[in-house]
Amino acid sequence: MIDPYSKITTIDMWSDPYISKQMLKHHLSFDNYIASRRYQTIKKTVEFIHSYIAPRQRLCDFGCGPGLYTNVLQQKGHRVYGVDISTTSLDYAKSHNKHVTYKQLNYITDTLNQPLDVAMMIWCDFGAMAPEARSQFLRNLHQTLVPGGLFFFDVFSEKRFQTLEESYTSKEEIDGFFMEGPVSIESRMVLYPELGLSLSYDKAVGQKIIELFNWDKHYTIEELEILLHDYNFELVDYFSDTTGQTDFTDNELYFVVAKRI
């Protein structure tokens, strides 16, 4: 079994010229859940966030992708920033809304240098960070948010982890997700029950070799409360999905609202 977080390839996935174009395609298709949620869910999420916060807020979407959330939030009167590592996604976002300020940076190692009233991170990116990266991000965010500023983010729940099973699959494809030409792909799901952690591992062999390690931490609310408190945030609210629902019967995620202390 691979040591948890021994290899991190998140930036590789978003910076690879070919894969980043595939990710953008999935972002914009709305017919699967590879890169984003359905458009109607995105609209309902924006409506919920907008209803929760004060008017005309300085707001940043960390990991904004092609601007699916930032566009709508800007149209509702907020001063919106979008941050992402992918130039492919940012180029698309910039071409579709000149009124949003987009910046390419690594939000783990770099700071926005812009005071914010509201921050958001959606598509469970928070749980994909290694512990050291998560700590650095929260320290940076604490410096960026004004006192009392809000942070909206979603994470996978412990209930989702209970539904996962370890697995192995292999397949062949041509001009697929990873690269042009014929490719052999091995995929594994590896579970770390004591950590509530899952690893989705893909190895693609074709004209080159690509390995992707995607880690997902699954949280309980108690874990989130302790974690946020350690970095001077308070968990003020949580929901069973990003649209503000509160049915926790089979929820696969928590949508959390935290306040900067």
Rank of each mutant, 00 (worst) to 15 (best):
residue 137 F to S: 02
residue 198 S to Y: 06
residue 208 K to M: 07
residue 164 L to A: 02
residue 202 D to L: 01
residue 236 V to Y: 11
residue 163 T to C: 14
residue 193 P to I: 02
residue 238 Y to H: 10
residue 238 Y to A: 01
residue 160 R to Q: 07
residue 114 Q to D: 04
residue 256 V to P: 00
residue 72 V to H: 14
residue 129 M to N: 13
residue 10 T to R: 01
residue 206 G to T: 01
residue 4 P to L: 10
residue 131 P to T: 01
residue 108 I to C: 05
residue 221 I to E: 00
residue 106 N to R: 09
residue 6 S to P: 10
residue 221 I to S: 03
residue 174 I to K: 09
residue 190 V to I: 15
residue 249 T to S: 15
residue 154 D to W: 02
residue 140 N to S: 15
residue 28 L to F: 13
residue 214 N to A: 05
residue 256 V to I: 15
residue 31 D to Y: 06
residue 141 L to I: 10
residue 78 H to K: 06
residue 228 L to R: 01
residue 153 F to N: 03
residue 99 H to S: 14
residue 170 S to R: 09
residue 94 K to A: 11
residue 173 E to I: 07
residue 111 T to M: 14
residue 93 A to I: 03
residue 51 S to Y: 13
residue 165 E to L: 14
residue 224 L to Y: 01
residue 244 G to K: 00
residue 100 V to E: 04
residue 131 P to S: 03
residue 76 K to V: 01
residue 16 D to C: 08
residue 64 C to P: 08
residue 70 T to H: 13
residue 255 F to E: 00
residue 67 G to E: 11
residue 127 G to H: 06
residue 251 N to T: 15
residue 259 K to P: 02
residue 253 L to K: 07
residue 240 S to H: 01
residue 230 D to N: 06
residue 52 Y to D: 01
residue 78 H to G: 04
residue 141 L to E: 05
residue 146 V to S: 09
residue 234 E to F: 03
residue 229 H to I: 00
residue 217 K to T: 05
residue 68 L to C: 03
residue 114 Q to T: 08
residue 175 D to S: 13
residue 14 W to E: 01
residue 137 F to M: 07
residue 16 D to K: 12
residue 228 L to F: 15
residue 230 D to F: 02
residue 210 I to G: 01
residue 254 Y to E: 10
residue 169 T to H: 15
residue 208 K to C: 09
residue 78 H to P: 06
residue 185 I to F: 12
residue 121 M to G: 11
residue 74 Q to R: 14
residue 95 S to A: 08
residue 159 K to A: 08
residue 136 Q to L: 06
residue 123 W to R: 05
residue 110 D to L: 14
residue 65 G to I: 02
residue 162 Q to A: 15
residue 71 N to D: 13
residue 163 T to D: 10
residue 45 T to L: 03
residue 171 K to L: 08
residue 196 G to V: 02
residue 37 R to V: 04
